[in-house]
């Protein structure tokens, strides 16, 4: 078949149209909306405000608070997920007795729906009726304001995130660990490298590419955190645990302020892109070295 055979259009255009319909069109639609003042309640006709939505968003302290909260949750949670997950993967890779049982048990949280996890967590952390406070009470501790104090609530959300998503890190790191060649460790063993030196000199650098991918995926996912916060605290107390998605939800589906919400989504997209690009730029020299 020649390059300019017209039949190529039969193969290309359906794909292009599908991509346009399901990906490009909504994006452009939402971009246009973000330049409008577009409210459903009260129903006033849309009006072009250009960057008005963006400007008012950037001047809104609640927006910056949401960015701060989301970043805090994402970075702390992913940091803990990665550290704990890597450690658990190392432990599972060391063929401890009962390792298979651990492997299955540790993967379970990941299989649960985040909403269900959040519901269970909300009950456990319930300051007055939750079993956690009851248990602490047994030891003579006072009731802790798990979900009613801003800092505690953030901590609880992070804890639930870590609980649910560490298994993902374990799974990925374990897969990575199992691909590492054994004789390299034997060589290091003969060099009298301690376990710590072997980890930092061999395991960690050899798993850096996979680590980078895992952290990247988890970071992006964590920025989109919604259901956990929605169910556990609803963004409260006040707006102490309000994340970007939750903020968008409040604006879009409580106030039906669609132009504003679209602008918010685009700012969100820009923020994530900036984080992603920075992250990759920081890691690139290290990753390229390993190619």
């Amino acid at each position: 078949m020649m390059r300019n055979d017209p039949i190529k259009h039969v193969f290309i255009w359906p794909a292009v149209l599908v991509v346009l319909a399901i990906s490009i069109f909504p994006l452009i639609y939402s971009l246009t909306t973000s330049f409008l003042s577009y409210r459903l309640i009260p129903p006033i006709p849309p009006r072009v405000v250009w960057f008005g939505n963006y400007v008012s968003l950037l001047q809104e302290p609640r927006f910056w608070n949401a960015i701060y909260t989301t970043t805090l949750i994402a970075f702390i949670a992913v940091g803990l997920q990665y550290t704990i997950g890597f450690a658990v993967a190392l432990a599972l890779n060391a063929r401890v007795p009962g390792e298979r049982l651990f492997r299955v048990a540790l993967l379970l949280p990941m299989l649960l729906a985040p909403v269900a996890v959040a519901l269970v967590a909300r009950m456990i952390f319930n300051p007055t009726m939750g079993p956690l406070n009851q248990l602490l009470g047994r030891f003579g501790l006072v009731n802790l304001p798990f979900l009613t104090n801003g800092h505690w609530a953030l901590g609880c959300i992070i804890a639930v995130e870590v609980w649910q998503w560490t298994p993902f890190v374990v799974l990925m790191m374990l897969a990575g660990l199992q691909t590492l060649p054994e004789d390299v460790y034997e060589a290091a063993e003969l060099e009298n490298a301690s376990a710590w030196q072997q980890f930092w000199g061999i395991t960690f650098p050899m798993l850096l590419p996979i680590s980078a991918a895992v952290v990247f995926i988890r970071l992006i996912e964590s920025y989109k955190i919604m259901d956990t916060v929605f169910v556990m605290t609803g963004g409260g107390p006040g707006v102490d645990t309000e994340t970007l998605t939750l903020f968008a939800y409040q604006e879009g589906f409580k106030k039906f302020n669609l132009g504003y919400t679209s602008a918010l989504s685009f700012l969100f997209l820009i923020a994530i892109t900036i984080i992603g690009v920075t992250y990759l730029a920081l890691l690139r020299p290290h990753l390229e070295k390993r190619r």
């Binding site: 290091a188 009298n192 061999i202 650098p205 050899m206």
Partner: peptide
Amino acid sequence: GLRNCAMVFQNYALYPHMTVSENIGYGMKV
């Protein structure tokens, strides 16, 4: 590590992320 033996493996067992000089010098670095 305490036997002071050096081994050359069939599959070389080089550290893939290190350069030749880092590979050779790793034991001394350790």
